[in-house]
Design a protein around this nucleic acid. Structure first.
Lengths: 250, 250
DNA sequence: CGCTGCTTTGATCCTCATCAAGCGCAGTGG
DNA sequence: CCACTGCGCTTGATGAGGATCAAAGCAGCG
């Protein structure tokens, strides 16, 4: 199968949606626009393009020119790095309102792939940079997102380096739930659109260990798995203690 | 022992070195000042203070107000997070010219501790932010440092999540060497001022595994350990292949 | 109905953690 | 000058947590 990325397609064809995207923007409080002065908001809107992505479709590959940053309006995206022998490490999941695609150099250091069909807000970095110097409010917002990424990486590094499998899963579940709350969704029936393989590659485990640990959680009454893609946190407090190593299973 | 941090002391006393620090600045090409327009350079210089730190002294603790960012002029610093039961994960090592101390919120998310006696350039974030909006060249430099941190975290996440012990150590050694080259030092007799415990807590291993793996490297002719604190990379090419999972030991 | 892909469950193995000495060296004091 | 001691590193023996190998549910779907 030919692996042309959507970003590449769009770059070539110049296709983008017209119209008035921000008025129909579902981001609400997590939007970059919402709290901007009208002038800055208009300038940002002028840069914006909407991108649609099918499930499992690749947005950009590691090594592609880093021309845009993205914000999911709907759907979910994963970023990952691969080793030559096929080992994979997912570096982050991105949901509605999350900003991703920053790069230190001129190329992306990870691959971005849609977990489910997505609608993304796309911003060209070159023009965004120019805007940032003129729009201090926006600049602070973007800085905040970048620094939040750093803080999440620190947590992920602690998780990967020092936590046991149950602690990793407990951290993952409470983290997903906290992020849902932060963007205005409910804490407990939490949407987990990614499969076991993605969870495993995010937590530095195998799918078997993820599966086994989740069934242990279920037997302990910590969670419910009513249907694939949704998880119910039945005892979030204990999950949090587990995540911090203050409690253990059985 | 009372754990007053140096940063706290300085904040209280307001003590800082006067004089002309940048003219004696040993950073050279890794300096933030070097390539700035004179006006911006002067403003940055006005914010700067020099901090001296004894070995193993704490610069700031996780949870302390995040008032400054720092650049080592000499010495080495480690940042780490602790779990309630004492497990420790080092999130990064910082050498001459590296910028650290960014924080998403108002408090530090890690503890910073000197590995050896240090001299640090200290910049107050509040005033630095104001300067950044007026000094676009400096702003781009600082952005670049922040994005470089993100890229290094991605690598560390891959390392912790998916690499074996020998791969981790090979990555560590080549990484240390590459950073030495980037700041103008030699690639091979590389200074490794941190002890085995620090290396272990950085790589998600134990000191025993670090020690054993290094002796295997030595027996394979990959490295030499002439004296504590210095390592010679005898076969950097093979170390790199090891780091990428393209080669194995014995 | 029989695929196909994902998840669960089971049996076995292996890497690395844990537990426990032993070593080398610097500092200290007799 | 040399035991004594403390610390960091190395080395050895054992064990556990999670990986690997294997197979069996369990949908959705053509």
């Amino acid at each position: 199968m030919a692996q042309t990325t959507v970003a590449a397609q769009l770059a070539e064809t110049g296709r983008m949606d017209g119209g008035d995207p921000c008025s129909s923007c579902p981001l609400g409080p997590v939007s970059l626009c919402r709290s901007l002065p009208e002038a800055e908001r208009q300038e940002l809107l002028a840069l914006q393009a909407t991108v649609r992505l099918g499930g499992h479709e690749t947005l950009f590959n590691e090594g592609d020119p880093a021309l845009h940053v993205f914000i999911p309006l709907a759907g979910a995206v994963k970023l990952y790095k691969m080793m030559p022998d096929g080992r994979r490490q997912i570096t982050g999941f991105f949901f509605r309102g999350d900003l991703f695609g920053f790069s230190a150099g001129t190329v992306h250091t990870t691959t971005a792939e849609a977990i489910v069909p997505c609608v993304l807000c796309r911003l060209p970095v070159a023009r965004l940079e120019g805007l940032l110097t003129r729009a201090p409010v926006l600049e602070r917002l973007v800085w905040g997102r970048a620094l939040a990424s750093l803080a999440r990486f620190e947590e992920q590094v602690l998780l990967l380096g020092r936590k046991s499998a149950p602690e990793k899963l407990a951290s993952f579940l409470t983290g997903i739930s906290d992020r849902a709350v932060a963007r205005g969704d409910v804490a407990s029936p939490v949407l987990v659109p990614m499969g076991r393989a993605d969870i495993a590659d995010y937590l530095g485990l195998t799918i078997e260990t993820v599966s086994r640990t989740l069934t242990r959680f279920r037997h302990e009454g910590l969670i419910d798995l009513p249907r694939p893609g949704t998880m119910v946190l039945r005892d979030a407090a204990r999950l949090r203690r587990l995540a911090d190593g203050l409690d253990t299973l059985g």
